[in-house]
Amino acid sequence: MFDLTGRNALVTGASGGIGGAIAGALHAAGATVALSGTREAPLRELAEALGARAHVVPANLSDAESVLALPKAAAEAMGSVDILVNNAGITRDNLFMRMSDEEWAQVLEVNLTSVFRLSRAVLRGMMKARWGRIVNITSVVGATGNPGQGNYAAAKAGLVGMSKSLAHEVASRGITVNCVAPGFVETAMTGKLNEEQKAKILTQIPAGQMGRPEDIAAAVLYLSSAEAGYVTGATLHVNGGMAMI
């Protein structure tokens, strides 16, 4: 349905369940993809599975120098970065009263500051090309809050404000900046939950099931497409009705 032939996309956190599905969806639509993550082996596996038009560009987003080097490596591999999907994220959950400065700082650094740095770096090429797509993966908890996730929710809510500000600045240049906010998605992380925990979560989801990584990827694909050129500064909630906002 959406054709991304000739577009070059950098996807962070591509070694994870959602990131891998996003990379796969963009690739299937014809895009060339640069897969980033901290663990190189799963990125290589994914690149091999995708075949042509897939590059591996490992990076550690908690390291400022590594963040600076990533857009350059991606542009070298693909020729440009037309689509940036900031999907990488970490959690360091703790009750607010017990949360350390380090737990706070680590989550803000990876989930918010690295997105700022990566987005800033790719804008130059997008401005020149008069075309660009930045899609930031946030979370339902950025809008609703979640106990034990003060740091994570702050970073995700921060991404929304950042995205809107940037969207204002670059809209006239054919560049859109949007967010996709997943609810509960079946990944390795939620796979650790026991049946009782899962059943409890499901009572809060009108759709009666957890989301699949492909559900998130489809939203990213849309926002990356030419067809979504008039959509900017938006957050697309993909949560089975868990929070209708």
Binding site: R124, M127, K128, S172
Partner: peptide, 9 residues
């Protein structure tokens, strides 16, 4: 202001 950034580029 964005034009001036682009001019510098």
């Amino acid at each position: 202001s964005l034009d001036t950034v682009e001019l510098v580029m």
